[in-house]
Simulated assay, not measured.
Amino acid sequence: MRVQYEESFRVFARDQAAALRRSAYLLCGDWHLAEDLVQNTFTKLYRAWKRVDDTTKEAYARKALMRAWLDERRRPWRRVENRSGVIPDSGSTGSDPEVAGQRARTRNLVAHALTEVPPRQRAVLVLRYWEDLPIAEVAAALRCSEGTVKSQSSRGLQSLREAIARYDPDLVGVDAEGTA
């Protein structure tokens, strides 16, 4: 690869690594696997770097990440693995400890509940609500119709609500602003 392509790839990888890692973690629920998925994504992206249009590099990376995760889910040794580890907590130095604790608890609750959502629905939820992508881009990334994205989104949100209710029944019936 020519020097100019390598440098532009390095800059892109440096700028996008953290965001891709967070997205990968939300998909798989394991920081180590998320790192592997991001590495696989960057390997695929590096091979195609000359051919990828400047305006679609982020979309290409997201699509490659999604495909790497789906490929990983299909591997036989992943089917029997039980992931019940502790989710790491990062501290916030600028906020009230009680508020920070509640945010961390909520974040952990949602992350645990997200692991119980079926993989296809989880992928739609991460792309729609975490990555904030429009329905058309989610459909393109997952190679499905927009109607499928809408139905999977609806079912995924319902599955997420049910999983949260199992973890914390007190949150049932609470809206996004915390009121009943």
Rank of each mutant, 00 (worst) to 15 (best):
Arg105Ala: 13
Val99Asp: 07
Pro97Tyr: 05
Leu160Arg: 10
Gly156Asp: 06
Leu127Thr: 04
Cys144Pro: 00
Val126Tyr: 08
Ser153Asn: 06
Val126Gly: 07
Ala111Gly: 02
Gln121Met: 15
Arg105Pro: 00
Arg107Gln: 13
Ala141Tyr: 07
Asp132Ala: 14
Leu109Ile: 10
Glu116Gly: 09
Leu160Asp: 03
Ser151Glu: 10
Trp130Leu: 15
Glu98Tyr: 03
Arg161Ile: 02
Ala136Gly: 06
Val117Ala: 05
Pro118Ile: 10
Lys150Leu: 09
His112Gln: 13
Leu157Phe: 08
Ser153Tyr: 00
Ser153Ile: 01
Ala139Leu: 02
Ala111Gln: 12
Trp130Gly: 13
Val110Trp: 01
Val126Thr: 14
Gly147Cys: 01
Glu131Met: 14
Ser153Pro: 00
Leu160Phe: 05
Ile135Glu: 15
Val149Ile: 07
Arg120Tyr: 05
Ala104Lys: 14
Leu157Trp: 08
Arg161Asn: 05
Gln152Arg: 13
Ala111Cys: 08
Arg143Ser: 11
Glu116Trp: 13
Ser153His: 02
Arg122Asn: 11
Leu142Asp: 01
His112Pro: 00
Ala100Tyr: 03
Leu133Gly: 04
Val110Ala: 09
Ser159Gln: 14
Pro134Gln: 12
Val99Arg: 12
Thr148Leu: 04
Arg143Met: 10
Val117Ser: 08
Gln121Thr: 06
Ala104Arg: 15
Leu109Arg: 11
Asn108Gly: 12
Pro118His: 13
Lys150Trp: 07
Arg120His: 08
Arg155Cys: 04
Leu125Asp: 07
Gln158Asp: 10
Ala136Pro: 01
Asp132Leu: 14
Val149Trp: 01
Leu133Met: 14
Gln152Thr: 04
His112Asn: 11
Pro118Ala: 15
Glu146Tyr: 00
Ala140His: 09
Ser154Asn: 07
Thr115Lys: 14
Val110Lys: 03
Pro134Lys: 13
Ala136Leu: 10
Cys144Ala: 02
Gly147Glu: 04
Leu160Pro: 03
